[in-house]
């Protein structure tokens, strides 16, 4: 593999990794704080992506479309949490099933509205060029996605370790009873966490649009990949998700070049290896 191909694949892998990080960060924190495996998380990604696509067709710019669809998806997240999930706090199997039902409803509604034809999204004009260093060419947009991912990681790190809300959420992951004992309104925290996760999923979906496009079944692919990221990284750990996501992004990208028909198998085997060595994930707590 020549240096030029290698370098651009490296960047692509990193960019995919950042997309996975964005969606997995929401998934892992919802799981960590609320004890819910949100199976509808992939469809929120899909929804964010499709909505931005529609907004752009209405002559909105990429950036406005990005903001709008993240905001709308976050609101949908609030509705889902308040209308459905709130009714069955503490019943874990029921919650899984509920999000599964919602996944069906949302995915099929998306199919109804946007059809089954694969769609593509244009790279925003501002970023539609590349930078070259010697024989290596780096598309701006992918650099941009990597940058956003790193910024998000920094932001989450700051949020978690330096702010009061972050401390509350961290306490919630470790000990839920503690949070309510402190007199904090757990309901508000849960709604916030769920909306935040939904927004992140949409962000990932929109930013992923120009790279991945939109197709039926994408929500399953993305859900499975982000679940694997969460498993590798450790439950409720943003740091773990970040590292896990980058690992998966790179392995998947290079796997597709070297073993096109076995890329999923390689990702899965990585997860199995991590699980054999550390059943609680790379950065999971001892008692998972």
């Amino acid at each position: 593999m020549s240096l030029s191909i290698f370098s651009v694949q490296l960047l692509t892998g990193l960019a995919y990794g950042m997309l996975y990080f964005m969606i997995a960060a929401g998934l892992t924190i919802i799981l960590g704080v609320m004890n819910i495996v949100n199976l509808a998380h992939g469809t929120l990604f899909l929804l964010g992506s499709y909505m931005a696509f529609t907004f752009m067709n209405q002559q909105f710019s990429f950036w406005i479309a990005l903001l709008l669809s993240v905001a709308v998806t976050a609101v949908i997240g609030i509705i889902i949490e308040k209308l459905f999930i709130r009714q069955i706090y503490g019943k874990e199997l029921e919650q899984v099933l509920l999000t599964f039902g919602l996944a069906f409803v949302i995915a099929d509604t998306a199919k109804w509205i946007w059809g089954t034809e694969p769609q593509t999204m244009a790279v925003p004009a501002l970023l539609d060029s590349s930078i070259s260093i010697g024989p290596m060419v780096f598309p701006f947009y992918r650099l941009f996605v990597v940058l956003i991912g790193c910024l998000l990681a920094l932001l989450l790190w700051y949020f978690e370790s330096k702010t009061r809300i972050g401390a509350i959420i961290r306490a919630g992951v470790d000990d839920r009873a503690m949070v309510s004992a402190l007199g904090i309104n757990v309901g508000v925290v849960f709604t916030g966490v769920f909306a935040f996760g939904a927004g992140l999923a949409a962000l990932s979906g929109v930013l992923g649009g120009p790279l991945i496009g939109m197709y039926t079944g994408m929500e399953s692919d993305i859900l499975v990949t982000s679940l694997i990221v969460v498993v590798i990284g450790g439950l409720g750990s943003w740091k773990g998700s970040f590292i896990g996501a980058i690992l998966i992004g790179l392995i998947e990208t290079f796997g597709k070049i070297w073993f096109p028909s076995l890329s999923m198998l390689i990702v899965f085997l990585l997860m199995v290896v991590v699980l054999i060595i550390r059943p609680q994930g790379l950065f999971g707590r001892e008692v998972a």
């Binding site: 495996v37 679940l227 498993v231 997860m271 059943p279």
Partner: peptide
């Protein structure tokens, strides 16, 4: 391999396995 993990992990890992 799967059974060594906790309840949620089991759910997520089996999902990944089927997929």
């Amino acid at each position: 391999i799967f059974i060594r993990t906790s309840k949620f992990y089991f759910l997520m890992i089996t999902l990944a396995f089927g997929q």
